[in-house]
Design a protein around this nucleic acid. Structure first.
Lengths: 233, 233
DNA sequence: GGGGAAATACTTGCATACAAGCATCCATGT
DNA sequence: ACATGGATGCTTGTATGCAAGTATTTCCCC
């Protein structure tokens, strides 16, 4: 029934528990929409495809359920969550609250070295945009936000934010593929960095909040493109 | 070696998965410091004491690890986390960010009914303080903050906040037992509610932030009382 | 008596076997 | 033809068995 084209034999590396490798593999596959929203997942099927037993698969699915990326119905099945306005709204609210609080601290605490690192990231973003390298754009965008969070001296904030915004990541992932958004994204990043450099928490928060909301503004267009990825409203 | 006096045979109720019952039981036992920080836990021991097998115990421990309430060291053991300044600081930062953002929305959205419910909660708090009923105080305090969060229309915020602040809950739990704090707590709650009633987000955020920091101010005294509960600085 | 090494008793991580429940499909009876 | 009941194959939840690794303990030798 549910054929599984995209997945993903993992090879077990020393130093990382297999359940964490399974979690990362599945999480990325879902965020990239390689495992399409609504699709049914089978613990047995995933286990055999990944080359491990059900136990680590099961533990990874439990974690994904906490991220709201899958829904587990006892005795029925496990399904990739469809994107829902409610979940996206929750994720957006949480991300704004956490990252804006973090960027305020970042603006207070950032050193010249910190700013320089962020500058270099932005230059790399410019190159990635010019080269139309979606993978690089996504990675650099992530790194930019993560670095900002970590400047708050509370690295945990990034981890929590990252996990809370599973649905949002899928939307963001689809947004980044829309070229008309890329220029705006760069300008917004520059505005944030400028405020941080000036040690202006209010301006930094305002710029970040605007930036985060822009990602959301792409949502209707994405929903129109992939209606089957979304929950019925 | 690690004798286990306090725990807790759970009886399996229909409608709730046993792993969730195990999680709740262990979580409460840790927050109440019935399972003391630093203590070693054994999956086998817990399983036999709770009357279930290792599997649900293991899954509950995985969740507790994500809450940073336990630390799992492969091939060595599982330990109740000691309270650390870093973890408490992280939890405080995250709680402030989330609950302050929520209370701003709450101040914008609260209806007269909402305010009335919170008023009744405060009156019950007054009665509980007069009766020196620690259990009731704790429950009502929790309910007050939860209700505020839910007024933001993002109930998920409370769930995330609740889980992120595991260490903080232990501190708060110990704080509530210090009678000299109770009067101040009530006044602070009243200030928050007044601001919400006036639909004044700035005042509400300010009052809540002050209130949340007060809990933290008890930390040195608690540390002095229970030095063995804390990580070496 | 003291020191070292091997055996032992634990730990968690992973794999597998068993149990319970739901859906579907097919056969059978009306 | 249609409805109904049962067998079958799936699902997740739980229990248990096996493997690998570490700390401790004990025994033997010096």
């Amino acid at each position: 029934m549910s054929t599984a084209p995209y997945i993903v034999p993992i090879r077990r590396r020393a130093g990382a528990s297999t359940r964490m490798q399974v979690y990362v593999a599945l999480s990325e596959a879902i965020v990239r929409s390689e495992l399409e929203p609504g699709r049914q997942l089978s613990e047995n099927e995933l286990a055999s495809q990944l080359g491990v037993s059900r136990t680590p698969v099961r533990e990874a699915l439990a974690r994904l359920r906490e991220d709201r990326l899958v829904e587990v119905v006892p005795q029925i099945g496990t399904f990739v969550s469809r994107i829902s306005d409610e979940a996206v709204g929750d994720a957006q609210f949480i991300r704004e609250a956490l990252e804006c609080a973090a960027v305020r601290r970042a603006a207070e605490l950032a050193t010249e070295d910190d700013v320089r690192i962020l500058e270099e990231n932005l230059e790399a973003q410019q190159r990635a945009v010019d080269a139309v390298d979606d993978e690089a754009i996504n990675a650099l965008d992530n790194a930019f936000h993560q670095t900002l969070c970590e400047l708050s001296r509370h690295p945990m904030v990034w981890a929590i934010s990252q996990r809370a915004k599973g649905h949002l990541n899928r939307v963001r992932r689809l947004s980044l593929l829309r070229p008309e958004y890329l220029g705006g994204m760069l300008d917004e990043h520059r505005s944030i960095l400028t405020a941080v450099e000036r040690h202006d928490p209010d301006a930094a928060e305002l710029a970040l909040r605007y930036h985060l909301r822009m990602v959301l503004s792409e949502l209707p267009a994405i929903r129109a493109t992939h209606p089957d990825y979304f929950e019925e409203a």
